[in-house]
Every structure is written in C-alpha cells, then in structure tokens.
C-alpha cells in the first residue's frame, strides 16, 4: 500500500487572539510540515501556542496570517479527515464506549451493523474489548484516552492530531499509552501531529520534533529522531537518546527562562503569582 495522503503543510502561520478589542499575538511565522505517514511532535513551554497551532489544523480557528493545507487543500473548517484527540478526553458522557467510537461513523451515515463491525476492530486494537457498554465515567484515565484515540480514528482520517493527550496520566500509564499509540500508528500508517511538553515522550514517539519559542510562539529548532524502531521504553538510557534529550532540554529550558524573564520584567506582582501557584518549579 503506497501512501500519498496525509501531507500537512503549515506555511508562515500566524494567529492573533482578539479579546476586548485587543489583539494578542499567540503564534508568529511558524512553518511546519508532516509528510504522509510521518510522526511529528511539537514541544515548547506552556502558552507558546501549541494548541493554537493544532486547533488551526483541526479547523477550529482560521489563521490570521499564512496558510494551513492538508493534502494540498486549504483547511476551511473541522472535518473527519483530521482526527482530533484532546487532553481532557472530551468523551461524550452520555454515550457508551461503543457509541463514542461509532459517533463519527454515524455522522457519515454508515449503517448500524457496519458501524459496529468497524468499531470492533479498533476497540480490539486499543485493548478495549469488554468495555464497549461502559459509560466513560466508569473508566480510568488511560482507558478514556484510548477511547478518545479510537474515536478519532474510526472515520479513517489521514491525519491524527493529539494535544497533550497523555498529560493527565501517571508515568506508568503514559508509557503504555505511548506504546499503544505507536502500535496504532504503524498499523494504520497515518500521519501524526503530536503536541506535548514532555521531551522524553516526544523523542520516544517521533520521527521529527519541532521546538517552539515562548510567546509569541515561533519555531526555535527542528530535530530528526533517527533512533531505530522498535523503540524500547527501557532504551531511554542509551547514549543516542540521552544526547538528543540533553540538547532538547537545553533549548526548552532556555525558552522557559525567557518566558519567565518576560514575566518577571513585568514587575514583582508577576513573581508573587508564579511563586504562589508553584509554577516556577514547574517551568524549571
């Protein structure tokens, strides 16, 4: 099977948020591409515009400057050709696991039997057999996010967009989820654009990693991750991995400090706030 679909081109992208008649520049002049079948991550300090970028590819927001194209066509709104996975799971609480997964197929007008058959394959792939009739409330975080991923995949998108999907999970669950995602990606051979603030996660999963600067978000660096696959979670101690990790961590720390410097320059009030909710430690 040759892949010709799933090309994402983000071209000199910029986005300003307008609130109270005041424009805030969230992202400026970012150019990113995802080749068909490629796994690409974006890392950067919190608030640098990662979600903004992903939402533009999903079609939730139009760019202020530049262009976003998928397979050569300008993104004009949300659509099932791009699957979206949110950090807060965002499963429909009133639908069972099966109904959540079948939602996109139902919207496509696919019949009940066919829907069930297609959903079943994906549920099996994510280890969710036996939980089809549960409501999301009764599931653990890891299971909810597996449902979220499978739901986004059910309509057969060419591109999967994930916005810090494992950010709320504990470390062990996260490693398992990363393996499941790698599995699914390799099976379905789709393009993935993955947002995270976890450097290890980005390296472990990706073919390429983009680093963004603090606000307004711009591109700071781009890395190819040439580590061979399959990648073993225990292999994170190997020299190749560690060297890459050190380099990426250095860049991100620089950006975080820059972001903080900007805020500190704003006066001591800023410092109080940051120390107050402990985010200083988070940033470092």
């Amino acid at each position: 099977m040759s892949r010709t679909k799933g090309l994402v081109e983000i071209d000199h992208f910029g986005l300003d948020y307008i609130s109270d008649g005041q424009a805030t520049e969230a992202v400026d002049d970012v150019s990113i591409s995802v080749r068909p079948g490629e796994f690409v991550s974006i890392v950067g300090p919190s608030g640098c515009g990662k979600s903004t970028l992903l939402n533009a590819v999903a079609g939730f927001r139009a760019p202020t400057r530049g262009r976003v194209r998928v397979d050569g066509e300008e993104v004009r709104g949300p659509g099932a050709d791009r699957g979206m996975v949110f950090q807060q799971y965002s499963l429909f609480p009133w639908k069972t696991v099966r109904q959540n997964v079948e939602f996109g197929l139902k919207m496509k007008g696919i019949g009940v039997d066919e829907r069930e058959r297609m959903a079943r394959t994906l549920l099996a792939l994510a280890g969710l057999i036996g939980f089809e009739d549960q409501y999301p409330d009764r599931l653990s975080g890891g299971m909810k996010q597996r449902v979220g991923i499978v739901r986004a995949l059910a309509t057969g998108p060419k591109v999967l967009l994930l916005d810090e999907p494992f950010g709320a999970l504990d470390a062990q669950t996260r490693v398992i989820m990363q393996q499941i995602l790698t599995n699914i990606w390799q099976r379905l051979r789709l393009s993935v654009l993955f947002v995270t603030h976890d450097i290890d996660e980005a390296i472990f999963l990706s073919d390429r990693v983009y680093v963004m600067t603090a606000r307004p978000g711009r591109l700071k660096a781009e890395f190819a991750v040439t580590l061979p696959r399959p990648r073993d979670p225990d292999g994170m101690q190997e020299p190749g991995f560690l060297a890459l990790r050190r380099e990426l961590a250095g860049l991100i720390r620089e950006e975080s400090l820059r972001a903080m410097g900007g805020e500190l320059a704003g006066g001591l009030d800023g410092l109080d706030v940051m120390l107050g909710d402990g985010s200083l430690a988070d940033v470092l």
Partner: peptide
Amino acid sequence: LPMPTEPAPLSTLPRSV
C-alpha cells in the same frame, strides 16, 4: 513492522477500574 503488532494484552494495562 518493527514493533510487536499485537496490542498490549489487557493484563498489562492499568486496572484502576
């Protein structure tokens, strides 16, 4: 496909439920 193609068996998955 370099990765194992079987999904992680259920028994290795978190069981908080």
